[in-house]
């Protein structure tokens, strides 16, 4: 006799419970119990099991099983899937184009054009000879060990996703800094995005988009990497010296002048710190995204795991570290250049 049956009996709910009694599919626990034989199950049954859905279901068929919950969620999602797809597909299509286009450019440009361009870009961003030389060396190293193509693919994805994260993250951060209500609503969402295990992102996305579309991993990366830009833009603007804001008001600036001439420039060091973190996080996510067909170094890491090709996996992993280091150095050098320019030493 299942636990809690008495409870339903004394409450006089027995009839209601048995009203639509049909053979519900057995739960895993029941199956196991059956396999072990009746007596064993009775002996093993705890004296007072927690009245969970499954336990109550045994006593009263009207109460659903936990499986119904997850199934319901799945069914709910599937039932709105087409509508969601109808809205999201065209909205996110540009992301696919951006990713495919950039990947095409990074892959098809010959190395003797791409490497100099990247070196020049890092010079203009960092203005540091050491950093620039280091970037050049790392790129040549990738080429030397035949990892140039995959490294470029990874870099292309990181660039696109970081760029879009900044494009959307900064305005969201500005909005958050201007309204406490917006901040109260957005912060839990950011917390959620940051703490969800990265694989969990992929689950609903796989249902929505086909795995062959690049926007699938693009969205996953951006959702994960956009968080620091938003947070630090909001923080940066809120931390702007109140005295300077007051001066801006006292000299008659309007809201837009205040934003572009005072708040954003003063928040810039914080925003750039956010961009730096965003770059690092998209790099981390790009590896996981190779599970859903994102090209690049992550694919090699995955191959290393799947086929137990130790060397391939380790080299690709170290390659990712090197990429992370150069991206980090260049963006940090850019940040400290901004700081220095203002005469802080």
């Amino acid at each position: 006799m299942a636990a809690y049956e008495k409870v339903f009996d004394t409450l006089g709910l027995r009839e209601w419970c048995d009203a639509e009694k049909e053979e519900a599919p057995m739960s895993m626990a029941q199956l196991l119990a059956q396999a072990q034989g009746e007596e064993g199950a009775a002996a093993d049954a705890p004296i007072l099991p927690f009245p969970s859905l499954d336990v109550l279901h045994e006593a009263c068929a009207q109460i659903g099983q936990t499986r119904d919950l997850t199934e319901g969620l799945e069914r709910g999602f599937l039932s709105i899937r087409n509508e969601l797809k109808f809205v999201l597909d065209p909205l996110t299509q540009p992301l696919s184009w951006a990713l495919d286009g950039t990947l095409y450019v990074f892959e098809s440009a010959p190395w003797w054009i791409m490497i100099p361009i990247l070196v020049i870009v890092s010079w203009f961003a960092s203005r540091s000879r050491g950093v620039t030389a280091f970037v050049g060396l790392v790129l040549l190293f990738f080429a030397a060990i035949d990892h140039y193509d995959v490294a470029m693919q990874t870099m292309a994805i990181v660039f696109v996703c970081t760029g879009l994260s900044v494009l959307f993250g900064v305005p969201i951060g500005i909005g958050m800094s201007k309204s406490n209500t917006a901040q109260r609503i957005i912060i839990p969402i950011l917390d959620l995005l940051q703490t969800l295990p990265t694989f969990v992102y992929l689950i609903p996305l796989i249902f929505l988009f086909s795995v062959t579309e690049s926007k699938l991993y693009g969205i996953a990366i951006i959702l994960y990497a956009i968080v620091p830009v938003i947070r630090l833009t909001d923080l940066g603007i809120r931390l702007v010296d109140k005295d300077v804001i007051e001066a801006a008001n006292a000299f008659g600036m309007n809201a837009q002048q205040k934003l572009t001439r005072v708040e954003l420039p003063l928040a810039l060091p914080n925003i750039m710190a956010g961009v730096n973190q965003t770059i690092m996080m998209s790099l981390a996510m790009v590896v996981i995204a190779s599970l859903v067909s994102a090209p690049g170094l992550g694919v090699l890491v995955l191959r290393g795991i799947r086929n137990l090709e130790l060397g391939v996996g380790i080299v690709a992993g170290l390659g990712i570290v090197l990429l992370a280091v150069i991206l980090d150095r260049v963006s940090k050098a850019a940040l400290s250049r901004v700081d220095k320019q203002r005469g802080h030493h």
């Binding site: 010296d241 005295d243 300077v244 007051e246 001066a247 008001n249 006292a250 000299f251 008659g252 001439r261 005072v262 420039p265 003063l266 810039l268 320019q341 203002r342 005469g343 802080h344």
Partner: peptide, 18 residues
């Protein structure tokens, strides 16, 4: 009014650092 009739000097200077 703030632009044309009154200007202000602050205790902590409140200059634009950038």
């Amino acid at each position: 009014l703030r632009q044309k009739q009154m200007s202000m000097v602050f205790q902590k200077f409140a200059l634009l650092p950038h």
